[in-house]
Design a protein around this nucleic acid. Structure first.
Lengths: 233, 233
DNA sequence: AAAGATATTGTATTATAAACAATAAACTGA
DNA sequence: TCAGTTTATTGTTTATAATACAATATCTTT
């Protein structure tokens, strides 16, 4: 009957923030240091936080994002909640929770959000102690992240894959303000896991009404420079 | 600073269960009776439950669904979590929570799941006290449901709309085992909010590999009987 | 036998997706 | 300066999918 005990878990939000460097998708991860028996371990985790007493879930997610990047008006959407009772059982995670939260925390149900931002945005931290960095998605697969954050990232990736098929606008949140068609195609193919034909792809995108050609070319490349485009409206 | 207090809300799951009667989409709602100052109020709510101490979210949703319908192997998927601090503030809801849960419950964060089932399935209740009924989605919009269950239903509807565009298989979970093309089209158009052309629609679906014509006709209709089809694999 | 109700079917047109390779422009190093 | 390297850019043909559009068939009821 211990199975039937009602129990209050904590509730948190975690943000999966994707960027694109022109070639690969990246995730923003927070550095975490844990001292365990006089040894320092270095770790990475998603930006996240326990929700506050009077705070809605979306508000908590925006707060976390803002504390991290200093920015607002970001494409941010909830995509899944994770509540496996054993997701907070790793001893290293338990230790970190006790140190940071100053209290024993048992189970945590987390609500995950995803955001896509331009990777060249300067990240402003409210606290000087936190440090965030971009990591290749492929690297991340072999890292040992905190909690079930690898699962969360994978599910978040799935989510923006689907979303980008419905609203191609999402792509331009990831690209720099001025971009080449090649960059757009690389991003598109990365997200859709395809290899589209160069000619067909260009035909498709130049007829999108919200993509406009500029009178500018790429600079500093050791070959023919590509035309730059921007996203409008 | 009261804004910064860490607080443990309860966590629950709610299931939005859709059915289709051949003409309209329906939701399964639980009857709820509240006695308030010697008066009995009748109410409806989504099937749901606080999660148990050692229970994963998906497990909780399946438990709720099973306790309600007695069935397993149902198309069930998590679609959104709702955590507005004020979602449990309605006095009637507070009263009901105290009566049913035997304890004061403040905030509840709920994780919502959606399921689609055949409406002619016999519902077996584990407890004789609960009673569930199908309601038209249009009626439901004007009912006063418990908590924010109207919002949850709307978001769940959005979810199966999207999902049915990607996987048409979902449609056959809602249709009876033997169905007519007209029923299929009505369901399709209801979900997609379209009015497709009869000829084009038939051309489209008869070439779906998983739809097979039977040697049977509808019975008991006061006009020409339609051919029956079934879904395979 | 006529009227009413729903089921069933085909053709022409348009739009979209897919397949496929040659040339142009800029830089690099000899 | 020239040959070689690298990436950018462009068109045509074919196949597939979506759209527009109305007449006839079958069964029931009166």
């Amino acid at each position: 009957m211990s199975n039937e005990i009602i129990y209050n878990p904590h509730v948190s939000v975690d943000c999966v923030i994707f960027g694109f460097d022109g070639e690969k998708l990246k995730v923003l991860l927070i550095e975490r240091t844990i001292s365990e028996q006089n040894t320092l371990y270095n770790d990475k985790k998603l930006p996240g936080s326990i929700i506050l007493a009077d705070e809605d879930l979306d508000d908590a997610a925006y707060r976390v994002l803002n504390e991290l990047t200093g920015l607002k008006n970001i494409y941010l959407s909830q995509f899944h909640s994770f509540g496996n009772p054993r997701r907070t059982e790793n001893p290293r995670d338990v230790l970190w929770l006790e140190k940071t939260m100053q209290l024993k925390i048992g189970r945590i149900v987390t609500v995950a959000y995803v955001a896509v931002i331009k990777i060249d945005r300067k990240l402003q931290f409210k606290s000087d102690q936190t440090s965030a960095n971009w990591y290749d998605l492929n690297e991340v697969r072999n890292m040992n992240l905190a909690f079930d954050h690898t699962d969360i990232i994978n599910k978040g990736l799935e989510h923006i894959r689907h979303k980008s098929e419905i609203e191609p606008n999402l792509l331009f949140e990831l690209l720099p303000r001025k971009f080449t068609i090649t960059q757009l195609q690389t991003l598109y193919d990365t997200l859709h896991q395809t290899k589209s034909d160069v000619r067909n792809f260009r035909k498709k995108v130049v007829q999108w009404p919200y993509i406009v050609a500029l009178d500018e070319l790429e600079e500093g490349v050791p070959h023919r420079a590509a035309r730059l485009y921007k996203y409008k409206k």
